[in-house]
Simulated scan of single mutants.
Amino acid sequence: MQQTDGSTGLGKVLMPVPDPHPDVFDRQWPLRVADIDRLGRLRMDAAARHIQDIGQDQLRQMGYEATHPLWIVRRTMMDLIRPIEFQDMLRVRRWCSGASNRWCEMRVRIDGKRKGGLVEAESFWININRETQGPSRMSDDFLAALMRTTSVDRLRWKAYLTAGGRQDAAEIHEYPIRFTDIDLFDHMNNSVYWSVVEDYLSSYPELVAAPLRVTLEHDAPVALGDKLEIVAHVHPPGSTDQFGPGLVDRTVRTLTYMVGEEVKALAAIFPL
Score class of each variant (00 low, 15 high):
N190G: 01
T180I: 13
Q28R: 14
N189I: 07
R114N: 12
V152N: 07
M89Q: 12
G116C: 07
P221W: 03
V234L: 08
R32C: 14
I269F: 03
K12I: 09
V119L: 13
T76W: 04
V248F: 09
S239N: 11
A232V: 08
D26F: 04
V92S: 02
H173P: 13
D57Y: 06
Y175S: 09
H68P: 06
D153L: 11
T256E: 05
L266S: 00
I51E: 01
E229I: 13
I72P: 06
Y257I: 14
H173K: 09
S97R: 04
Q28P: 10
A121R: 04
A145H: 13
Y204F: 12
M89Y: 11
A170F: 13
I182Y: 09
G63L: 01
S7L: 15
D249W: 03
D249G: 05
V33R: 12
L155Y: 01
I182H: 06
P83K: 01
N189Q: 10
D168S: 14
V108L: 06
T4D: 10
R82Y: 08
R32N: 12
A66K: 13
H235S: 01
M15G: 11
Q58V: 01
V196M: 10
R154F: 15
I51Y: 03
M188A: 09
R107D: 09
M89S: 11
Q52F: 11
I110H: 01
L201P: 06
A268W: 07
A121C: 12
R74L: 15
V234I: 11
L80M: 09
S202D: 12
R253N: 11
Y160N: 15
R91A: 02
R82K: 10
D45I: 10
Q28C: 13
Q87A: 15
D37K: 04
P205A: 03
L155A: 02
G11D: 07
L90P: 01
V17Q: 13
R109T: 12
P30F: 08
S136Q: 11
D219W: 11
E65S: 14
L224K: 08
F243Y: 11
N190T: 02
P205G: 03
M188K: 02
V259A: 07
K227T: 15
V152R: 04
M78S: 05
R213S: 01
D249K: 04
E198K: 06
S139M: 10
W29G: 07
S97P: 09
P205V: 01
H187P: 08
E105P: 06
Q52W: 11
V252D: 00
